[in-house]
Design a protein around this nucleic acid. Sequence first.
DNA 1: CTGTTAGCGCTTTCAC
DNA 2: GTGAAAGCGCTAACAG
Lengths: 341, 341
Amino acid sequence: MADVARLAGVSTMTVSRALKGNGAVTAATRSKINAAVDELGYVLDLSAGSLSSKRTGFVSAILPTLYNSNFSDTVNGISEVLGNGGKEILFGYTNYSREREEQLIEAMLRRRPEGIIVTGGTHTPRARQLLETAGVPVVETWDEPADPIDHVVGFSNAATIEDMTARLYFRGYRRIAFIGGDSTDDVRGFARRKGYERAVEMLGLERAHVVPLGPPPITIAHGGPGVARLLQEWPEVEAAICVSDPCAFGAIMECHRNGWPVPERLAVAGFGNFELSRHCWPTITTVAIACTDIGRRSGELILQAIDGQKPAIAPATKSIQIPHSIIERESTGEAASSRKS
Amino acid sequence: MADVARLAGVSTMTVSRALKGNGAVTAATRSKINAAVDELGYVLDLSAGSLSSKRTGFVSAILPTLYNSNFSDTVNGISEVLGNGGKEILFGYTNYSREREEQLIEAMLRRRPEGIIVTGGTHTPRARQLLETAGVPVVETWDEPADPIDHVVGFSNAATIEDMTARLYFRGYRRIAFIGGDSTDDVRGFARRKGYERAVEMLGLERAHVVPLGPPPITIAHGGPGVARLLQEWPEVEAAICVSDPCAFGAIMECHRNGWPVPERLAVAGFGNFELSRHCWPTITTVAIACTDIGRRSGELILQAIDGQKPAIAPATKSIQIPHSIIERESTGEAASSRKS
DNA sequence: CTGTTAGCGCTTTCAC
DNA sequence: GTGAAAGCGCTAACAG
């Protein structure tokens, strides 16, 4: 920067102001500086700047996995808002491990993020403590933590599947099973299963049946074996709710393979409204969440909190509810009436 | 850090050494320091450290999209190797826009990465210049650039589809179409289409037929309309090679929907060996690339180059070829013989 | 094995 | 609108 200043015949301070755009610099000096910048191929060094300004321009975002377009949507939402706010995002993936999350949080804290977005409301004690004492706004997403650290942008995973179960009941299904959601490592899948069980109880259904799939990530590959096991364990089952759309898709493909018509032999529903489910044959009934909005709202909250910190008035902790909706498609269609008739 | 040093009764330099792990520090002083760190809840500030040491610990990785598990695999490979090498990764997504890539490169350069991994070998002139003058190792991946900037970890997209076309020919198919690959924005898809056309010519097939899908990203949604249009434009077609697996999947689902048996009425092949294709019904014939290896090798190259720079001997620019293989599955199975008989 | 000194490249703060 | 001085929090380099 000193070189640029010398070449432009000004001080480094003026160069700094010109490059940041906001500072008050004459058009003339500005163009001289730009010329010098171009000639030297100079690129501003933000790491030096952030040391001095005490604002790194980083926000951390920690998510479970790269391989889930629901989370990718959230990432997109975060990027969109924070990008416009001039922040860069440091992404980290936990692979559904709380220990890994703790490590990631610690690693990111070393980069002095101005805000932290995490997925879910359960963390290791140390992770929680790190987040609480980090001194920057924290947003927990995709869940409704019992005891929030700071801000929350989430929804009740249990409620979504309660709704789905009720909807299947409404369509005439009585023997409804759940595939997945047995591992506490997948906080959200676990909550969905709980929602299923609660709904079964409230609707007074004869039986709740859960097919365990083990620890996450649950992928397409889990659906086939899951549905095969379900039909063996409970041949009278009429409908299966899968912990997620990819799992539902795997289940449906297995049904095709075995000549079990969907939804006539077995209705299948998923979660997440993945692209897959819209184009699959049959199309898959699912729970739609505004995943991108989760990211956007989280980003907005962080941005506000960063700005808000300056007036020495800590902005009130916010909890934003993201709505969900049941999308009924072919995989649970007309079946109920036809099977009854 | 001064606080920690005071509490532990040592100098900041000793604290710095203890915290980096490598420095020579007595076990006794080290434990005193750790105690002080824990008591104060101190977390090292890497941005300050990197200013001083001139090593930021960052490596940039720029990819086309979040929504493609092939690239996610590459991201995973990069993370794996660079994580072990003590580097953090700054990810950026271009959404297949070269302008966006240029912006990303510039933004990342401001963070002084120690290495840059980009996807593909075509960049805007300015982007190319930025990469060339960045003074850090650059790896181009997923392609075989005609004029590489520095290192390359790639493969010939054209060759993969030449192979696929030849394989279909070998299986008896003669009327083979290609779906997608019409947009120059998708460098790799475009190359695949070129491979198809070359193969058609070399095999002396009667006709090359390409169904255009427009600019990327090409998703599942494109497959259905693509195949419908193909069968209308060229009813005699026997096999379709899709620019990617998701597209092939969409095509197959459309076939189901219309009662066109796959592969009996139309054989379908894809690219990328997505999880989808292994579990779909029918399973999808595809090109498998060692995507994770692309990431791993790129990471290794960067790591070597960073180390190598010190001995003042610039390490030779390397070009690593990633192999591909054709995986034949049900979507192109037995059809040829049966249709001939 | 530990401490001292200097300085990384920028921005803050204040003066003009 | 521009400049000078000081310092952000750490580590390189050297001395002991």
